[in-house]
Design a protein around this nucleic acid. Sequence first.
DNA 1: TGATCCCGCCAACGT
DNA 2: ACGTTGGCGGGATCA
Length: 802
Amino acid sequence: KTPLKQAATSPPVLTEVQPLATPPKPQKTPPADPWTPTSNLKMLISAASPEIRSREQRRELSDRPSQLLQAGHSLQEHLSGDEYEKSQPSRKEKSLGLLCHKFLARYPNYPSTAENNYICLDEVAEELNVERRRIYDIVNVLESLHMVSRLAKNRYTWHGRHNLSKTLQALKKVGEENKYTQQIQMIRKREYEQEFDFDGERNEETARSLGSNEHSEMSFIELPGMEFRAASVNSRKDKSLRVMSQKFVMLFLVSTPQIVSLEVAAKILIGEDQLEDLDKSKFKTKIRRLYDIANVLSSLELIEKVHVTEERGRKPAFKWTGPEVLSDIQDTKLEKPSTPCPPPLSESIPSKEQCSKNLFPSRGKQNFTRHPSLIKLVKSIESDRRKIQSAPTSPVKISATTEQSLSAFPGKTAQVPAISRHQLEGQSKKAQEMKLPRSALECHLSSPEAVAKPEAPRAAAASQPPLGVCPPSHSPVPPAILPHPHSGVSYAIYLHPSQAPTVPTYSPSFMLQPLPCANVTGIKSTNPSVLNKVTTEEGDSHIATDDPTKSLTAKERPPLKSEASSQRCLKRSQALQENNLIKRFRSDEESLDTSLTFFPSGYLIALTQCTNGNKAGFSDKEKAGICSLQHTTYSSPIAGVIPVTASELKAVNIPAFHITPLNIMLSPTSIAAAPVLSNPCLNSSNTSSAPNPSSSVLNFTLQHIGLIPAGVQVPANPPLQHVPVPSQPENVSQGSGNASLHEEKPSVPKEPQQPQTVTENFFHTPGGPNTVSSVSANPDGTDRISQGTLYIPQRKLEVSKD
DNA sequence: TGATCCCGCCAACGT
DNA sequence: ACGTTGGCGGGATCA
């Protein structure tokens, strides 16, 4: 067809004869593939002769379903001639997932930049023996993750996972901006209500309000650094698969329990506009596509198929098993659990490790100040940042900025242009500019969580999607950026709970976040509470089995279930009331405690923020909800580290970058504190700040505003260290803050009950006993362990407090 | 049977 | 006009 083989490079050769030939797949990949050991495997395989390769793959497949397959194979041999052919390729063998594995095996996860990793569709199709159409399915999804980009006609460039973290961050951000979290909750809520006959209708309205976010449409999200090559290419109306894939991923990144059922995803992706009248056919088609996407994502090991069991029955769903994504800053990739995998790129690695190590700041720089006034802190911080920025390497902004990339709205809208504009400007200029203003905007916009006011924020947010985009000043080379990330230190201020009344409302949400995340750690953090059981069943493609290599991955399997179930549980629990309620309460209480607990003492502690580090260190934390946020970690004097979740931050929506640096947790009143981070932004646009927040919030914000210097926001993260300002000392616990943050559920507060609850419920329900499903049962035990490790301390602390 | 999802027609584009 | 992309959904498989 049209393969161009031309390039001096070898590519053409490899096609049939030697797969190896392909330049791109450097087996060795020096840095190593951080990711999964499997990657190595894959590489090896790829290197191996095709035959071998295929065998390997089959094996992989086989794992679960394998038996069937194998049987098939053996049979084939036995089979009479004609038949055997057909028989052989069982459907599974032709599955997209398998095909994708083969495809991925051809290229290294982290190709060296220099090389030209070209992909010739024709060649690939030929080698893999599939119609080209199928390759498109794979490539389109990979494109959505920026793992490949179209170069020209039949050619694509392989980027591997280099851009993955950035991409995920960007997607997460956009997802947050789009209120996907809320949408998910609504749908879930609705579902369960329907189950019970509740007055489902009402909800719809609600849903509608949410669902119909104007913004719903968004176009393909690009990374700043790498835009598409051929302009022409871009022009293409990116329609479904690519965009759908991005949206699908967003759902995972934004969803608290990082489990998304196909049904929910389809509903959201479809009609973001009209939830209701889903055409049945349309719905069906959407699901079909989602399966395609899911298969590819599964092969990438970003998600894993699970089943969520509800009273109704079990529903297919997928669980995110990819790296944790911090909302803001840099990198992120948490990878899986604890494994300290070296990040592929030099970039991330250092930061993470350091971070983790740094967590215990006892050492030098970070001191924490006690009682210092917030303001001072801020100032100091700012100054630091500035210094940093000015400094040659001001890593801070990193990817985050870049990521912002944008989401375009409805295509036509001007946004795109805007975005481009931003990028341009940004590049030319400094991030700073962007940051401030933008951050402010974002803060306001995004911060729905504030919850306080549902109304305002969201719209704004939605409308302005893009924003962020701060062009990374130097986006060009990611690695460069990373360099110092860890340097930044974040500070946490702990307040005494007593002082601050906590904010109850939040707590729930608060809880929620945390629970879900469990997977991160190898263990499932699980929430005990989870009622429902989720079983992980993989579809065909997963490999999982026992590769030693995969040790990393391993984490996920077992425990995970709980999470999903938890959600379900929630729903039910609500519905059920009664018994459940009781249980729930407990759970809630616990949750609350936790939230409160977080901060035992009131100090300000500086932590190094390392994005990664934290996560790695604390999976729990992540789970906790932190997920979204960046890594801010807090350490308490006592516990050492408190994983605060980023949630708070998130809630605020503060632009990632700024925020990162410091997090301040405050008590309810103090809640504001969180905002502080954002403050800078606020300052600029104070009005915005005002918008929603509840009175407490407002106060809080106001204070901050006044207090906080705009500058604060600035940069980043890095080195706040010295700054530590004394803020007001102890205030309350932040718990509230966090809670507040949690999401924006409030957006539509129609119902008396707690709408968002769903999520909450999940969490709460801890026991999960309830219902049905679950066998999952003992999550508690497990949970505790897993999450527990992290959390426990906190709680205890809390308790003490109380 | 319902969950999956392969297969490939055929339209939208690009050249 | 022809080739590349890729939306779409029938209907085969799987569980």
